[in-house]
Write a protein that binds this DNA or RNA. Structure first.
Lengths: 197, 197
DNA sequence: CGGGTGGTTGAACGCGTTCAAGACATGTGG
DNA sequence: CCACATGTCTTGAACGCGTTCAACCACCCG
């Protein structure tokens, strides 16, 4: 288990054919647990020069078995990761490319740890291809949407790794457009036939 | 927290505009935890008549605080859910419609709790629209792929809710086709500048 | 300056969607 | 038992979004 002190890392799962799927990014202050119950695991790689504080899993589990508070901490990290994974599923499954990008940028903006107070540009250390992989798009599409958002005045870009959200409301409107015609299920209260404690 | 005794339920997240995203299905024998750390939550609905064994969260947390084994149990459930969520991300982001369906059917087949020994038909209680929502497709596409798989001899369908996988190897080949041109990152070993335990 | 990686932009294709109609199954009331 | 209604599933045809292929541009580091 690691704690990111500085820098930026990406988390990904390796596929059988040598490809990868980026499942998330981590900024300073975030916790990363690569193996949870010693079975499930994914990989991490630093995007920029990164400082980590590491906790060996062996020592971790030794501490966890005796200390419920410690285990609870890891538990909450996993819950957070699960919530993020569900959000990602929603993004990829139910949003179009623009919606995915808008949601992604808003998320980056919210999670940005520190930003210069004068101009609220946030750092965007990952490559365009990383974003594309993460959202299930191609880097060409990502690039096109970037320029499109610039033209429409939603964002402002400085260099490759610095961005400012000019019109958050507009981006939120785009990310709220959900494709698909599925109506949410009718919530009829269940009929409890034989209640067992 | 619930344990499914019989029946079939679907898990989904509600969206702001009244839509939903199905994030998974649960069969008899599975555990379901709707709220993990009392903040994150999603919803569940029975697809067929279902029997549950329920554990009130209050009682659960009371037991968990004193019993690390109990907390560890819930922890493993979350880990399993997280793993499944990552698989779903991979499916939606990196597979085409056929690949998604193949992966889904193989997963259903593997997880099927009990099947008639003579003909290994497995139950498929959910609607076509549920599958479509789950995989980020439309029910038309799901229907088309079903008939296509039938024609190609990959599956055999009886009624609407019973299916048999005839050619698992073929389905696996289809689900292994990954779209996208991203190469996995080169795994250069990190340069440890200042190791801090 | 060159070389290389990453990024942008353009044009055409194709997969999955959208729209629309029909088939099938199930339940209800006459 | 049939006529009808409702909801699900299937099938067809045309559209459109994002991809694919290809070229060019910008930046970075020697």
């Amino acid at each position: 288990m690691y704690s990111v002190k500085s820098g930026f890392i990406r988390l990904y799962t390796l596929l059988s054919n040598g490809r990868s799927q980026i499942i998330g990014f981590k900024s300073p202050g975030d916790f990363v647990a690569l193996e949870y119950d010693s079975k499930h695991r994914f990989s991490a790689q630093a995007v920029t020069a990164t400082e980590l504080r590491s906790v060996p899993t062996a020592a971790f589990y030794a501490a966890a078995s005796g200390d419920p508070q410690f285990l609870l901490k890891l538990y909450k990290v996993v819950c957070e990761d699960l919530s993020r994974a569900h959000d990602l599923v929603l993004t990829i499954a139910k949003r179009d490319a623009e919606g995915s990008m808008a949601a992604f940028l808003l998320d980056i903006d919210v999670r940005a740890p520190a930003r210069s107070a004068i101009n609220d540009f946030v750092s965007l250390p990952m490559l365009r291809g990383d974003i594309a992989d993460h959202l299930g798009l191609t880097n060409e599409t990502v690039s096109r949407i970037f320029t499109n958002f610039k033209k429409r005045g939603f964002i402002e870009v400085r260099g490759r790794h610095s961005i400012r959200l000019v019109n958050r409301r507009g981006l939120r409107a785009i990310s709220d457009r959900i494709t698909g015609d599925r109506k949410s299920p009718d919530l009829e209260s269940p009929q409890i036939l034989s209640p067992v404690n």
